[in-house]
Structure formats: structure tokens, C-alpha cells
């Protein structure tokens, strides 16, 4: 048992990544295995399922963005507005350009 624990501690990052791969795979095959068997999904369950990704990503975005400096917060506002017009990949490129420029100006 302690050998297993020692093995885990020694290889924590690759093993955790493997587990994350398994979890991702389970979500990718899960709908086929489970959800497609149901004919109708109750409305509150639908609402909950639909809300999950946006809810989680918000908790990952908001606290670090608001605790950062002025340059970072400005970048997030610009990037957020750019999302209405641009593809995600272009939003990221634009965001990084704005951030680097603002930092150069000493913000």
C-alpha cells in the first residue's frame, strides 16, 4: 500500500493527467452510454446540465481576473467585448497584444 502511495507521489503530475484523460473520455462517451437512453429529460435537469460549463468557467475566470492589476483588468474588458466580433483564437491574440502594450506603458 505504501509502495503504491510512494509511486503516486513520485509521479503525481503524469498520473493526474492520465486521470483527467479518463474523466474527459467518460464525458465524451457518457452521453452515448447514458443520456441517449432517455426519451425525455425533465426541464430542471436540462437547465442544470446546460448551465454546468458556464458556471464552472465563471468561477475559474472571475476571481483571478478581478484580483489582477489594472493592465489585466483592462485586457479582460477589451477581450470580453472582442468576443462579440472575433473568433476565440483572435480574441486571445488581441488580448495578449493589448496586455503587452499596456504593460509596456507601465500600467
Amino acid at each position: 500500500m505504501s509502495e503504491i502511495l510512494a509511486f503516486y507521489i513520485a509521479h503525481e503530475v503524469p498520473l493526474l493527467i492520465f486521470v483527467l484523460g479518463v474523466v474527459t473520455y467518460l464525458t465524451r462517451i457518457g452521453g452515448y452510454l447514458v443520456l441517449s437512453r432517455f426519451e425525455n429529460i425533465p426541464t430542471p435537469v436540462q437547465a442544470a446540465l446546460e448551465a454546468v460549463p458556464a458556471a464552472v468557467i465563471t468561477t475559474i475566470v472571475v476571481p483571478p481576473a478581478l484580483s489582477a492589476g489594472l493592465a489585466e483588468i483592462t485586457t479582460m474588458v477589451v477581450a470580453g467585448l472582442a468576443c462579440f466580433r472575433l473568433q476565440p483564437i483572435l480574441v486571445i491574440v488581441l488580448g495578449l497584444a493589448v496586455l503587452v502594450a499596456l504593460r509596456q506603458m507601465g500600467l
Binding site: 474523466v23 452521453g31 443520456l35 441517449s36
Partner: peptide, 22 residues
């Protein structure tokens, strides 16, 4: 907590895989 966050972020895949099943 990393596993939980990844699971939740991937929730949309459950909907994809249900839609693609047929």
C-alpha cells in the same frame, strides 16, 4: 478538485455524445 473541475468543464461533451449517438 482538479478532477471535479475538469469533469464539470467537459459536461458539454455529454450532450455532444448523446446527440452524435444515432
Amino acid at each position: 478538485s482538479v478532477v471535479l473541475a475538469v469533469f464539470a468543464v467537459n459536461f458539454r461533451h455529454i450532450l455532444y455524445s448523446a446527440a452524435i449517438a444515432n
